[in-house]
Design a protein around this nucleic acid. Structure first.
Lengths: 206, 206
DNA sequence: GATCGACCATAACGGCGTTATGGCAGGATG
DNA sequence: CATCCTGCCATAACGCCGTTATGGTCGATC
C-alpha cells in the first residue's frame, strides 16, 4: 500500500482513508457511538457513503480501524511519560497516563476493548499487532524494574499482565459508573492496589 | 404460532414484561447483540412492538432491564459457591464463579458493564441498587476474611474494590481476546495476581 | 486515442427505532 | 344496566439506518 504521491491539491483533503478514520474518532469522542453512522461519517469527511465501503468494506471495518487508531494514540500517550531512574515510579506514571487517556476518550476506549458493539456492528477488534504493542509497553516497564533489581526477577510478561489486568479493571469499572457504588478518589483503591501488586513482587527480605 | 390464549395459560405466558426480559436475555446470549431488535424481540415474546414501549419506554429501557437481570443472575451464580471455614478460599471460588459467569454469558456481561452500546442505544446501565448488591457480595467475603484474622483489619470496601477491579479487568481483557497477546491459562496471571493482592494484606509478621 | 481500473456520487432496498392511531377488555360510577 | 375511563396492545406509518447496484469520472497504460 504505497501512499498517495502527496498531491496536496488542496489543504482540505488528505487521503480519504485517513480523513475518514480521524473524523470517525472525532465524532465518536464528541457525540458518542450512536452518532456514528455511515451517512454522518461520509458527510463529515466530505464524501459519499460509497467511499466508506471502498476503503473499509463495511462500518464494522471502520470500527476496527478506529479501534486500532485508539491503540496507537494510547501508545503515544503512555510513551509520553518518559523514563526516569525510578522504574517503579515510571510504572505508576504509565498507569496514570493509561487512566487519563481512558477518561478523556471514553467512547474510543469502549470501542477498543468493547468486544460488544457500536451502533449495532461489533467488529473483531483492533489490529492484534498494534494491541500487542500496547501490552509490550507495560512488559518493557516491568522488565526495566526487574533489571534494576526493584522487582523480583521473573517472567515480565506474566507480571505485566497482572499489572494491566488490575489497572484496566479499575478503569473499566470507573467508566461504567461504579464510582457511584465504591466512591474512591483514586486514593484508597487504585494506588494501593497497584502498590500491593508490586510490593508482593519486591525483593524485600522476608 | 401460539394457539388461543385460553387453551394453555399455565406455562406459555407469564406477565409480558417478564417474558420480554427473558427473551431479550436469551436472544442476546444465543445470537449476539446485533440480533436484538424491537421487532425481533416482540416476535419472540409473541407480542407486537408496542408492548416493548408500554413496558420499557424504549429499547434503551430494555437494555437497562436486561443489564439489571444480568446482575441478578451474577449474584445468584456467585452466591452458589457457598461458605466454608476458609474465607480466602471462598474468595477465590467467588472469583472463579465470576469469571465462569462472564465467559458463559459474554454478551450479557458486555451489556452489564458495556457503557458502550448495544445495537446503537446505549443505556445508562443497570439498576444501581442491584449492581451495588453484587459489590456487597465481595465486601462481605472480604469482611469475613478480616473477621477471621486471615486479612489485616481495614476498610473491607476498599479492599473489595481492589479485588473486584483486578478480577474484573482480567475477565474483561480475556473477553476482549487479549488472551491472544498474553496467552495465560489462568495459571500464571489470574491466581497469582489475586494471591498477591491478598498476600499483601495478610497479617504475616513482617 | 482507446482501454482499463480504481474510486466515488446517486439512488434504491429492506430493516430499524419510534410514534400516531385506534380497538378492546374491565373496573368504577351514575 | 349503561357509561366512561384507563391500561394494554395490534396496525401502520415516518424517517433513518447499513448496504448494494448502477453508472460516471479520471489517471495510468498501451
Amino acid at each position: 500500500m504505497s501512499g498517495p504521491p502527496s498531491t496536496d491539491s488542496s489543504s482540505a483533503s488528505g487521503d480519504p482513508r485517513r480523513r475518514l478514520i480521524e473524523e470517525a474518532a472525532r465524532i465518536l469522542g464528541e457525540e458518542g457511538p450512536s452518532s456514528l453512522s455511515a451517512r454522518r461519517l461520509a458527510g463529515a469527511a466530505g464524501t459519499s457513503t460509497m467511499a466508506v465501503y471502498t476503503h473499509f468494506g463495511s462500518m464494522t471495518g471502520v470500527v476496527e480501524a478506529v479501534a486500532t487508531e485508539g491503540f496507537r494514540r494510547l501508545i503515544d500517550h503512555v510513551d509520553a511519560v518518559g523514563r526516569t531512574e525510578d522504574p517503579l515510579a515510571d510504572l505508576r506514571r504509565m498507569a496514570g497516563a493509561y487512566r487519563d487517556n481512558a477518561l478523556e476518550n471514553r467512547h474510543l476506549f469502549g470501542v477498543m476493548f468493547g468486544a460488544i458493539s457500536l451502533g449495532g456492528f461489533h467488529g473483531r477488534g483492533a489490529d492484534p499487532e498494534v494491541a500487542a504493542a500496547a501490552f509490550e509497553q507495560i512488559v518493557a516497564g516491568v522488565a526495566r524494574a526487574m533489571d534494576a533489581g526493584v522487582l523480583l526477577p521473573g517472567d515480565p510478561r506474566a507480571v505485566a499482565a497482572q499489572f494491566w489486568s488490575a489497572l484496566h479493571g479499575y478503569v473499566m469499572l470507573e467508566l461504567a459508573g461504579m464510582d457511584r457504588v465504591v466512591d474512591d478518589s483514586e486514593r484508597t483503591v487504585l494506588w494501593p492496589m497497584l502498590a500491593h501488586l508490586l510490593a508482593a513482587l519486591a525483593p524485600s527480605p522476608r
